[in-house]
Amino acid sequence: MLAAMDLVGQRWILRLLWELEPGPLGFLELRRRVGNCSSSVLSERLQQLQTAWIIEKDANAQYELTPKGVELGVALEPLWNWSERWSKLGK
């Protein structure tokens, strides 16, 4: 459990999972969407997610969630829902 928490706790990991949830994206599109993340850090995070079998590259060199990644997204959904509610408290 701690290894999974260490992985998702790293900067940009949750954002990458969020961006990949709707479907595959290429490196440049991911880079555009995450904004402040450098190319080297983005490459490192994508490699970490691939090593953990959370994402994979498809035939078009786009990154997509694996079944394990989809399952992680389902597990994180309550956190995302909570953050949506929390962010609206100040408005």
Rank of each mutant, 00 (worst) to 15 (best):
A4S: 08
L20P: 01
S43G: 15
V41Q: 14
S40N: 14
V8Q: 05
L7I: 08
V41C: 10
N36I: 11
G26S: 05
E19Q: 12
L49V: 00
C37R: 10
R31P: 05
R31V: 01
A4I: 04
L14Q: 04
R31A: 12
L42I: 11
L46N: 01
R15F: 06
G35I: 07
I13F: 02
C37E: 11
V34A: 08
L28H: 11
Q48N: 10
Q10V: 05
M5E: 09
V34N: 08
E29S: 13
R32A: 13
L14E: 05
S39E: 15
E44A: 09
R32L: 12
I13Y: 02
R45M: 12
L7A: 05
R32V: 06
A3K: 11
M5H: 03
P24G: 06
R33T: 08
G9W: 07
F27M: 04
S38T: 15
W12I: 05
L25C: 05
L42P: 10
E19T: 00
A3P: 00
L25K: 09
A4Y: 01
C37S: 12
F27D: 08
R45F: 06
A3S: 08
E21G: 02
V8K: 03
R31H: 14
G9S: 12
Q48Y: 06
P22K: 07
S39K: 15
I13L: 04
I13R: 03
D6Y: 12
V41T: 15
R15S: 13
V34Q: 04
Q47F: 10
C37A: 15
D6H: 13
I13S: 02
L28N: 11
W18G: 02
R11A: 13
L14M: 10
A3L: 09
S40K: 14
L28Q: 10
I13D: 02
M5W: 04
L25D: 00
W18L: 11
L30G: 04
E29T: 13
R33H: 11
L16Y: 03
R15H: 12
E29V: 10
